[in-house]
Each structure stands twice: as C-alpha cells, then as structure tokens.
C-alpha cells in the first residue's frame, strides 16, 4: 500500500496525542500529577496540539477536504466515520478537562471526572483508528488480530513516554509514570516483533486462479491492460525492496523501542538532570521511530488486487 505521508503523520500524531490524553486524564484524576497551571498548559496543551495537528493532517489525504464534515454521518457501518465522530466527541471532555485544570488549577472533582471521560474517549478513538485497517479483508497484513491492539499499545506507549519527558523536564519526577512508560515500551517492542513474525507467515488471502475464475493449473499474467502505472498500481501496488525494509525495521527496533527503553530505564535508576535528559531523549527518538514504523505499516502491506497484475506485490 502507498505510504501517504499525511496518513502516517496523522496516525502517529493523534496516537501520541490521544495516548498522552489517556495518561493525563487517568493520572490527574488519581492525583499523581501536579495541579499547577504551567504543567497543565504543557501537558494538556501538547496532547490537544498533537491531536489537532494530526486530524488536520488527515484532511490533506482527502480529494475533497472541504466536505470532510460529511464523514460524521455513517457511523453505523464505517469505522472511518466512527473515528471521525469519536475524535470530535473527545474534544468535549478533553477541552473541559484542560480548561478546568488550567483555569482552576485543580485535578479533583469535576475536573477529574472530565479527565476520566476524556481518557475513555481518547482510547476509544484510537481503537476506531486501528479498526479502519484491521477490518480491510483485501490487505492480509492489516486484517489480523495484531493491528488494532498495536495501534492502542503504540498510542499508550508514546503518550506515556511524552508524559514522562514533560514531568522530568518540569522537574516533577514520578517513578510511576517512568515505570508505565518502561513497561509499555517493552510491551510495544514485544507486540511489534510478534506482528512481524506473524506477517512473515502470511500468504495472499486468495489465488490468481480464484481471482480469475480459472480453476486448475497455473495462471500467469502475460499482459497488463495498460502500459503505464494506473491508480491501482500507484495506490495498492506499492513495492519496497526487502533489503530496505530490513534496514528500516532495524531503525524501528533502535529508535522506537531500543533507545527509549534504555533511556527510560536510566531515568528510573537516576535522578536530577540525568533522568531529565534521558527522558527527553526517549521521547525525541521514539517519535521518528514510530513514524518509520507507521511508514512500514503501509509500505509492507499487500493488497489482493496486485494478484491481477501477476503477483502479490512481489
């Protein structure tokens, strides 16, 4: 599948933003986070900024972005529509939570309630994002039980790493948050390995015999209907050289998981500026790492239509 930069930026940024919102909502409500205005501005501000920038980026993918509002109508059948509805609904408790925290400098009572509702809505939105891909039967690498939980895990992971960096940068150390980040990075790394291991065992969900109705024997494409690349090949027939995919996977191992895990461990074991620096490094390497992970999520996914062109996007 064609790795569109707008969609990669969208899913990565909203994932981190909603993940951060989940942890802010839950931990503020449980009194772990400082009630100060500056921390609220930094934390909730960053979460809402990431979500908003991500959603605006998703509009760049549309052929007719001025009609985007129509996408809220078909939530009964469409995961994309459900995502649109969930993303807008989440703004209500999220803005109430952020406004209450910033203006009242309190994280209890109504602010805590808004925080918990915002966290639930944010998590639900990430689930809908994952389901958009997980529900597509023609793309074998997406139509697996790994896709949707992956989106949730990477969102919670990037949110926790960001929150830990903000806490450490504002000199409010929290062992609990650092541990949450550490455990989620480890879980994310495990999940990515499991996913890639599973992907390696996948074959095309159908065959060219079945796709052409020509039962029996071997069917081989000997002539395409067009001489140049058409929409189908540009959008669904994206191919990535295996050697490049392996190199990029190594970047994902190192940037999205390896360095953040080691840096977060250093942050847990140390204190003061060492812990602060390590936490910021974890966040700064995690984001490009996840962007590469998301690029590969698209580039390595193969669509059944490529069978008609003589391969499963070899």
């Amino acid at each position: 599948m064609h790795p569109a930069l707008s969609v990669i930026a969208f899913t990565t940024a909203t994932g981190a933003g909603y993940g951060l919102l989940v942890w802010l909502g839950l931990l503020a409500a449980s009194g772990v986070l400082p009630a100060s205005r500056s921390f609220a501005l930094g934390g909730a501000g960053l979460a809402l900024a990431l979500i908003t920038v991500g959603l605006l980026s998703s509009m760049l993918h549309l052929g007719r972005p001025e009609r985007a509002w129509r996408a809220f109508s078909q939530w009964r059948s469409s995961w994309l529509s459900r995502e649109g509805v969930a993303s807008v609904v989440t703004y209500v408790p999220a803005c109430l939570f952020a406004a209450g925290w910033i203006l009242l400098e309190r994280t209890d009572g109504a602010v805590a309630a808004a925080g918990i509702v915002a966290a639930a809505c944010a998590a639900a939105t990430v689930v809908t994002t994952g389901m958009i891909y997980a529900s597509l039967k023609p793309v074998a690498q997406w139509n697996t039980p790994y896709t949707m939980p992956g989106y949730v895990i990477y969102a919670l992971m990037s949110g926790a790493v960001l929150l830990n960096a903000i806490l450490q940068a504002s000199r409010t150390e929290s062992r609990a948050v650092a541990w949450i980040a550490f455990v989620l990075i480890a879980l994310g790394w495990f999940w990515k390995n499991m996913t890639w291991h599973h992907d390696a065992t996948l074959s095309a969900p159908t065959t060219l015999n079945s796709a052409t109705g020509l039962g029996g024997g071997e069917v081989r494409s000997i002539e395409w209907p067009h001489s140049e690349k058409n929409y189908l090949l540009k959008e669904m027939g994206y191919r990535i050289a295996r050697k490049h995919a392996l190199k990029l996977r190594m970047f994902v191992h190192v940037l999205a998981f390896g360095i953040p895990l080691a840096a977060t461990e250093i942050a847990i074991l140390s204190a003061g500026w060492t812990a602060g620096l390590a936490s910021v490094i974890a966040a700064l390497t995690l984001i490009p790492g996840l962007l590469i992970e998301r690029w590969l999520f698209f580039a390595e996914a193969k669509h059944t239509v490529t069978l008609y062109y003589g391969g499963w996007a070899q």
Binding site: G63, R64, S78, A211, L232, M236, V305
Partner: peptide
Amino acid sequence: DLCIGCKLCSWACPYGAREFDVAVGVM
C-alpha cells in the same frame, strides 16, 4: 457530490474495481 475522496472504498475492494479521479478528487 458526497464523496470526500478518502480512497478507503478502493482499499476495501479486492477486485480493483474503483479508480480515483485525482483531477476531480472523488472516487
């Protein structure tokens, strides 16, 4: 008139039946 050009329908079709018109921005 309702299509926003998100292309998801073309991803959902295993047969490659739908083609996006980049000039008009709709499927």
